[in-house]
Design a protein around this nucleic acid. Sequence first.
DNA 1: GCCTCTAACCTGTCTGACAGGTCGAGGGGG
DNA 2: CCCCCTCGACCTGTCAGACAGGTTAGAGGC
Lengths: 238, 238
Amino acid sequence: MHELETVAFEGGGRVGAAIGAITRHIRDHDLVPGDRLPSEAALSRELNVSRTVVREAFRSLAAMRIIEIANGRRATVAEIDHGAMALMIEHGVLTHQISVQQVYDVRRTIESRIAALAALRRTEAEAAELVAIAVAMRAAANAPEVLMERDLAFHDVLARASRNPLFGLIVGALKAITRQTWSIGWRSRATDADRERMLLHHEELARGVAEGDPARAVRAMGAHFDESIKALVAAGMS
Amino acid sequence: MHELETVAFEGGGRVGAAIGAITRHIRDHDLVPGDRLPSEAALSRELNVSRTVVREAFRSLAAMRIIEIANGRRATVAEIDHGAMALMIEHGVLTHQISVQQVYDVRRTIESRIAALAALRRTEAEAAELVAIAVAMRAAANAPEVLMERDLAFHDVLARASRNPLFGLIVGALKAITRQTWSIGWRSRATDADRERMLLHHEELARGVAEGDPARAVRAMGAHFDESIKALVAAGMS
DNA sequence: GCCTCTAACCTGTCTGACAGGTCGAGGGGG
DNA sequence: CCCCCTCGACCTGTCAGACAGGTTAGAGGC
């Protein structure tokens, strides 16, 4: 990897400058997740600002999960995490800037690629896990809450098997929306045949990934999302 | 749209609780971008916490671009914006949690879908804009800095033409990485033929979108990214 | 009715203080 | 000699009060 430069985000105030200084510190010292940052007092001395300013800068970075803060402990560099991104996207949906259907279109796009990559890169353990979850989903066919959690777990494993954490990050961020709309889609799957098809798609997907057949996996994922989106639209989800 | 519930993110402290209260306020009052929030003093009275706590909560939300804060003005609900997401992803790359290649794989996936959607949904004005930018790119073939900006503008227009702001959001977030690696890819396009192909791909893409031919647009986008990624790998980009 | 200007309001930053959590250096016990 | 426990230094979380500087709504003049 070559040199990268942090984007200038320092919007005017001293807090922005402090944020810049801290991210620069991370970059210049080539810190990795878990590494500790200077204390608030040390930074406030170094930057010639009050502790208030440093604290607000820390809070900002913690909100983006760039660093982690906790009482008594020094702030540390954080691992990427979808929590903040989920909040941002959720806010977009809540304020009518993004529709649920648009979220599903993005998810469909991403998950299709994930399916292909997973078919090519999954470990044996992941293949077995996917098949097991698909079986477990059928067993929970009459318990929507449980079924949803297994559905989400299925897609988590899939994302992990794609060997690209950015896919996992995005899917994880969209999961919050999924969780809130899942039951609507399920209820609108009126007939047993509809529900059976959903289970079959997951089984087919698991098999495609297990057998290392990307085309098959992508086809199953596409079919799954086509039905999901159709179900949401049928339920009147804008 | 049906009822959605904000994810519980209130990690322990009062600041987390304040964040929850503010997001709940936005949701309960169905606020949209531009609407004003209560003042810090009002919130601190209402929540029985000090202004410090409210301020840190505001900073956190501002970092995620959920609200906007400025001196003298009341905080307002913000429009979705890729700035925060860009910072998060950049941090992931800087701390070696995500590779540049992985970023490009995600971009390729997203942009291919964008190309298809843009071909179906673009306005006439956008079609003309894309063709114009493609022409302008050729004119800047010997000025890498200018060429890059036009390249980025091209993809921005494309994202807008997809009529799905979430695609624009993600592409915008990845743009920071793109900006920092673009010149590496360009330099590694050793021959004039390589560089010519890149221009041709953009022209072909613009034409595919203009003529409403999704398959053609997707094909051109795929070819473009295949070359871009090849160029980055050739340059030793991890 | 429109414009101007001011006073009230609001945010940005600083200071000092204290409660409570964390962690490592030493000392005591096995 | 090693392990465990304790304690003190260090650090973060929250509060209160203060003041500078920006913003805005409304009073008052034209």
